[in-house]
Design a binder for these strands. Structure first.
Length: 260
DNA sequence: AACTCGGTCAACCGCCTTATG
DNA sequence: ACATAAGGCGGTTGACCGAGT
């Protein structure tokens, strides 16, 4: 079936999002939610297609996004889940709070795939263990196939969860990254230093991007009702909210966020 | 200093599934 | 039951940046 594109290309902006566009999108979703992505850009006054808005929100602007490098535990979790699930990035992301499918996909292709191939090559070059002759025959088969990316069919009949569940999964997965007392936890629930995920690096990054001095009162911002409501949980600052904070503080809008 | 190359990651594309009338 | 709209997914692209030459 041939379908028209999801949005007319005429007059709609593409490419990287500007800070102003981010603010408009956050303002709108904070005030009205995102019931209908297709109608959203028109109602919010954005010259973007709904798909682009959804992607920007889910992959970047959502307040529960965790930024910075992946921890060793997270990498191991991805490897483990990828072995079980294949390239089902959204299913993997659902098990890694604060991480998006896009981010996991990127880290897989840039780091983990190579890591896995290297590991498998090392195993292949290792002298084979002495095995009973009946089992030795199939040893190499397994190692060779492990080097390839698992081929997962488009329909996943053997999976215990439905294929399209990332929206709900993502929402439910957002509840464990940052406790109400401000402590940070990794995906295994271990308490962590807040700098662990490269928080300090992010601060510099955003300061550069926004040309603002980051010395504001995050607590005041993060405890606003509207912020809590959009986050879906009672949370203090995390990286996504930090971005919000800077976005609005640079425009002098705190605490008069729309919808609050 | 200028250039190349490879890594990174945000964004887009096309297809599929689900929801709705 | 069917057609269409909308949401969502995985694959891919391309701009950017830093390291190496």
């Amino acid at each position: 079936m041939v379908r028209a594109p999801c949005c007319e290309k005429m007059g709609l902006k593409r490419g990287p999002w500007t800070i102003e566009e981010d603010r408009i999108l956050i303002n709108y979703i904070t005030a009205y939610g995102h019931g209908n992505w297709r109608a959203l850009p028109k109602q919010a006054g954005l010259l973007r297609c709904g798909k682009s808005c959804r992607l920007r929100w889910t992959n970047y602007l959502r307040p529960d996004i965790k930024r910075g490098n992946f921890s060793r535990e997270e990498e191991e979790t991805i490897l483990e889940l990828h072995e079980k699930l294949g390239n089902r990035w959204s299913a993997i992301a659902a098990r890694l709070p604060g991480r998006t499918d896009n981010e996991i996909k990127n880290v897989w292709h840039t780091h983990l795939k190579k890591k896995l191939i290297k590991k498998n090559q090392l195993e292949i070059t290792k002298p084979p263990p002495v095995l009973p002759h009946s089992t030795q025959n199939h040893k190499h088969d397994h190692q060779v196939t492990a080097e390839k990316e698992p081929q997962v069919p488009m329909n996943y009949p053997n999976q215990d969860s439905p294929q399209h569940s990332s929206g709900d999964d993502a929402a439910s997965s957002a509840t464990t990254t940052c406790a109400s007392n401000g402590s940070f936890h990794d995906s295994f629930g271990h308490e962590m230093d807040e700098n662990f995920y490269g928080h300090e690096m992010d601060e510099d990054f955003w300061a550069d991007v926004l040309s603002v001095d980051i010395s504001g009162d995050f607590d005041q911002f993060s405890q606003l009702d509207g912020v809590e409501n959009v986050c879906g949980y009672n949370s203090n600052m995390n990286d996504g909210m930090e971005y919000w904070f800077n976005l609005f503080s640079s425009a002098g809008e705190i605490p008069e966020l729309p919808g609050f």
